[in-house]
Design a protein around this nucleic acid. Structure first.
Lengths: 232, 232
DNA sequence: TAAGTTAATGTCTTAATGACACAATAAATC
DNA sequence: GATTTATTGTGTCATTAAGACATTAACTTA
């Protein structure tokens, strides 16, 4: 079939891909933001992302990964689509569409790299109000946070904010940071056992008291969804 | 700020908006499909949708609604974003991105209109395999169905497949059709009461036995999500 | 050695659903 | 008109997974 489609026939909207990359650092939920160097909103902080490069991206998921790698040098441990945001007024250049991904990473994996660049920063979600943010990205981050909180209630995805080996105590802290509320250690242990996603590592680590058992995610497991929410 | 953005600078991907509109008809889950008149895939059946018209659509949600109204003459009772599908190979014209919405409507609201046009049809999901379908729309429909099944376990959105006034029996049938499994009438009644989304209509209808109480959705209510799934 | 700290387990309570019997009410049949 | 049948709606006990919290385990520090 001949390529008789002419892109100029349609006023195609401006299409970009952005990511909300979360991590938990010192008991605080943080999001990766980059300082914009070009218009619009030059000088303000925005989500890492950009335009699709149809020559090197096989799909828009790869665009999200590519842009994240540019800023963090590694791929996030978890990535899913959040939502698409669109409108005539959200970008001064005209009608725009942004597909936003939602990602998680262990802080230790990237902090050294982030520290070396000055155009990318982990922003504490509680200090987001003070930051000059581009576009509707503040709103988008809030929606991503709500999605993360919701998912933390019925799935184990918060584990993707942790390093390869982790303790129940660390897992508990990550979940509590996301939810903003304490959870029962017992509930987490019950779910770790029920999910069959994790295995004990033959090693224990110091924690100020009794040694803590290390766990890791089994290779190539599916993420388990529970039928019931934590009701903290 | 001057509009110094030149769209030709970037090879912008082809962007379309499609919708998976479900209804329940005679105990079967059906999806609205339209016969394509233009290339690619002319003659095959695809999801209702098309290009954004930046002159009349304020955002892409309006594009989805506009395209659905063209086919059904009414707006669906429920509409949410499903996901975005993209890739270099899904459309012969090149790299394409489709934002897919997921919608519900009461069969009675549209069946008369659908019956008068021959380029739009309700397709039984169990007979989808036989139909020549365009693009990756068969796959997309399956994913939408899974999302609907999942949501039916913890929310009351299946009510949006029902007319304004409905009985518990009708509600039960819709849920069972979506899930493909029987559910306890008692569980539905309990949730109707707990959700506080519904009110009794001062009217009962014949049903072959004892008269059935009619319910309706309260005006302007939020959709309630339960903390626990039905575990049929 | 005792006190303090964190980890892990045991167990009772709580909350929502599943299962199912039973009662209410209307239509069809004898 | 009484009886059967169908469907709606209620009552109640069992089941399941989480919450609450006491108890035990294991290590550190004074």
């Amino acid at each position: 079939m001949a390529n008789h489609y002419d892109i100029t026939e349609y006023k195609n909207p401006l299409f970009t891909v952005d990511s909300v990359l979360f991590t938990v650092q010192e008991g605080a939920l943080k999001v990766l933001m980059v300082k914009r160097t070009s218009e619009p909103f030059a000088g303000r902080w925005g989500l890492p992302g950009g335009f699709v490069n149809v020559d090197i991206d096989d799909n828009v998921g790869m665009t999200a990964l590519r842009k994240l790698k540019e800023k963090t040098s590694v791929a996030p441990q978890y990535l899913e689509q959040l939502q698409t945001y669109s409108g005539v007024n959200r970008d001064p250049r005209g009608f725009s569409v942004t597909l936003v991904y939602f990602a998680l990473i262990a802080e230790a994996q990237v902090s050294t790299h982030i520290a070396t660049v000055d155009d990318a920063k982990w922003i504490d979600l509680n200090k987001l109000t003070e930051l000059p943010v581009a576009f509707d990205h503040k709103f988008i981050i809030e929606q991503a946070k709500e999605r993360l909180k919701q998912k933390a209630l019925y799935s184990m995805i918060p584990v993707y904010c942790l390093p390869e080996h982790f303790t129940v105590g660390q897992f508990k802290l990550v979940i509590e940071t996301i939810l903003g509320k304490p959870v029962q250690r017992k509930s987490i242990i019950r779910r770790i056992e029920a999910a069959d996603m994790f295995e004990k590592v033959d090693e224990k680590v110091k924690s100020g008291g009794r040694l803590a058992q290390l766990y890791k995610v089994k290779p190539d497991v599916d993420i388990v969804n529970f039928e019931r929410n934590l009701s903290v």
